[in-house]
Design a protein around this nucleic acid. Structure first.
Length: 554
DNA sequence: AGCTTGAGCGCC
DNA sequence: AAAAGGCGCTCAAGCT
């Protein structure tokens, strides 16, 4: 059963029940309090809640202590269907741009959007949109039922991801301010009272000024620093640490240390802590489907880029543990399954797929295996990685055939799609590509540019199918895990997800349930593999660790 | 004054 | 040693 919510969680809500055949009940008018009662009373029947935007509706429910198991996020679903190769020729695909093409609910504005004034504004009627999406899938199913089923799975997984993202934001990641503050003091010195540089950082700045003989130097200014380095006779083209690392000069050591500290201060310093950590919890905002491939992004907080330095501050509560699991060599396993490459799947049967490549005699060392695989996934054109490619092609023709085909399609300006049917964007207007007609004034240069652009786009589409399908697997993994965690709850608490990082999850759990969580996360990975790839014998190996703080994982 | 851009560096 | 896909975030500089 589907229940469509229209309006906004503050009020002016209409609730409509739909049967699978699309027959609607008489709409129910509700205010904000009525919504909570209605959700609580209907959720035990496990309906799929259909709403415009999870970030708009779900926080109000979570605030009231309610959770839902299943949903359809119409905005996320619309975006997938609108772009999907599979929906070519359907009404949704051909419809002119409308309110559903808009972007996510803006931050801090979760209950004040265009949907606020009622269901029909700008044609943004959730019931009509939901039915259109159903019909679109029906249209696809008429010619290719399997393709439609995959798209449906994708929409469900994406929508479940949106639920999880809001749940994680609401609950937050356990964060020890004292541990974080100690890290900052150790690296930077005491927190400055009235702004300005922390003492240790200023001390390093002084050493750099002396070494470069420039008392006025501001090492935070890239142009200023570059000028000073050149004046000191150093052969530099930029100020990146990779370039500086190679130089021998008294200024280099304090400069590298300064850059490291400055980075920590600006990205995860005291200001960051004040903005994002409250009551022992870090509350990041995830953007589901924020990356074209289907990966998540963040909006503020940078939860997906927590540097190793501060991970010690992610600390389980007293009596609780963190279970950290990451999928080992996920993307190679994904393309093995997609291409039905038995040989690579066999190499991944052991826990370490890279070692599997060595054991199979494809390459001589694990390091080479890794470099070669990255080359296959990213499209290496030079260096060691490119030199190892022929060995991979011989050993795994199906895998390499898959990624090469994706690259060639991109070079021709075509879309490619993930396993479940998310399609790559079409190249932009400035993309001339392989078919570019050379202009008369500078044909050679234009032609070169066009070829380069085509190759660049090919590397993008090559990676898109692997990265995007990996993201789909990960969402299915996490969705299954979420269900299993709920079932583990007892009187001492409920294990819950606190971090999702592309191929890694972290669960905060009562300590006595850590082993059960480890089993759950492993079983959920197996389930996800079967859900996507059926009986194809590919393993999705995990590295799982039970720890008290995040820096202890790995 | 406020916006965009580029450099740089953190993550997968 | 560097290369090759996807990002977010911050600062300073350069622009309007």
């Amino acid at each position: 059963m589907f229940i469509v919510l229209a309006g906004s969680p503050r009020g002016g809500i209409t609730l409509t029940e739909l049967t699978p055949e699309g027959v609607a009940s008489a709409p129910l008018r509700l205010d904000g309090a009525g919504l909570l009662t209605a959700v609580a009373s209907r959720e035990p029947q496990r309906p799929r809640w259909v709403w415009s935007d999870t970030a708009l509706w779900y926080p109000a429910l979570l605030q009231a202590g309610l959770r839902v198991e299943r949903s359809q996020d119409l905005r996320l679903a619309h975006r997938i269907l609108k772009l999907a190769e599979a929906t070519k020729g359907t009404a949704l695909r051909d419809a002119p741009a409308n309110a559903w093409d808009g972007s996510a609910v803006p931050p801090g504005d979760h209950a004040n959007t265009l949907f606020d004034d009622g269901a029909s504004e700008n044609g943004a009627d959730p019931i009509a949109e939901f039915l259109l999406q159903r019909h679109t899938l029906d249209d696809v199913a008429r010619t290719d039922p399997a393709k439609a089923a995959r798209l449906q799975l994708l929409l469900a997984a994406e929508s479940c991801g949106a639920l999880i993202a809001e749940e994680m934001r609401f609950t937050g990641m356990p964060w020890r301010r004292d541990v974080h503050a100690a890290t900052l003091e150790e690296a930077l010195g005491p927190r400055p009272q009235f702004g300005g540089r922390p003492a240790k950082l200023e001390g390093l700045a002084d050493r750099i000024r002396v070494a470069l003989d420039n008392p006025a130097l501001n090492p935070d200014s890239q142009p200023d620093l570059l000028r000073s380095l050149k004046r000191a006779g150093l052969p530099v083209t930029g100020t990146s640490k990779w370039e500086l690392r190679e130089l021998r000069h008294p200024a280099i050591e304090p400069l590298l240390e300064f850059k490291k500290g400055a980075r920590l201060l600006s990205a995860n310093g005291w200001a960051w802590m004040d903005a994002w950590v409250q009551n022992g919890r870090f509350h990041p905002e995830y953007v589901v489907g924020g990356v074209v491939t289907g990966r998540w992004a963040t909006r503020g907080g940078g939860a997906l880029q927590l540097p190793a330095e501060v991970r010690g501050a992610v600390h389980a509560d007293e009596g609780w543990s963190l279970v950290v699991a990451d999928a080992a060599q996920l993307e190679p396993r994904i393309i093995a399954a997609m291409s039905r490459d038995e040989a690579m799947a066999a190499a991944g049967r052991k826990r370490d797929l890279y070692q599997g490549l060595v054991d199979a005699g494809v390459v001589d060392t694990r390091a080479h295996a890794k470099i070669a695989m990255l080359g296959a996934l990213y499209g290496a054109t030079s260096g060691e990685s490119a030199r190892l490619m022929p060995r991979l092609t011989r050993a795994f023709p199906r895998v390499i055939g898959l990624v090469e085909a994706a690259a060639r399609a991109g070079e021709r300006g075509e879309q490619v799609s993930t396993w479940l049917g998310r399609s790559s964007p079409l190249p932009g207007d400035d993309w001339a590509g392989a078919d570019a007609v050379p202009s008369t004034d500078a044909p050679a240069a234009d032609d070169r540019r066009a070829r380069q652009a085509a190759r660049d786009w090919g590397r993008f589409t090559r990676n898109f199918v692997a990265q995007g399908t990996a993201a789909e697997w990960a969402m299915c993994w996490m969705a299954g895990l979420r269900q299993r965690l709920r079932a583990l709850a007892d009187e001492r608490g409920e294990p819950h997800l606190v971090l999702f990082l592309h191929d890694e999850v972290m669960v905060h759990t009562p300590a006595h349930l850590a082993d059960a969580v480890t089993i759950a996360v492993t079983e959920a990975a197996d389930d996800a593999g079967r859900l996507l790839f059926g009986n194809f014998p590919v393993d999705f190996a995990l590295t799982v660790a039970t720890v008290s703080s995040y820096d202890q994982a790995k």
